[in-house]
Amino acid sequence: MTVQTHTAVTTEPSLVDLLDRLLGKGVVVTGDVVVSLAGVDLVRIQLSAVIGSVRKEMGNL
């Protein structure tokens, strides 16, 4: 949807914004593992949280 106001920008969401929402935890920076994507230093997501929620769902089978 294009919004007819300069207030909103409609571009492809950034990965961080997306993961903020899809993981429901927020994206955090931890010093231990840094992943590089297209030359930009990105920092690893809160994997323990992801894995925790995955496990919870898998455990419910």
């Binding site: 990965l15 997306l18 993961l19 899809l22 992943v35 994507l37 990105l42 690893r44 994997l47 894995i51």
Partner: peptide, 19 residues
């Protein structure tokens, strides 16, 4: 998943497809 979630390219592709 434990392995793949460490691979940012995999996470990005999966997240974008999910979205």
């Amino acid at each position: 998943l434990r392995r793949n979630l460490e691979v940012l390219a995999w996470v990005e592709e999966t997240a974008r497809r999910h979205d």
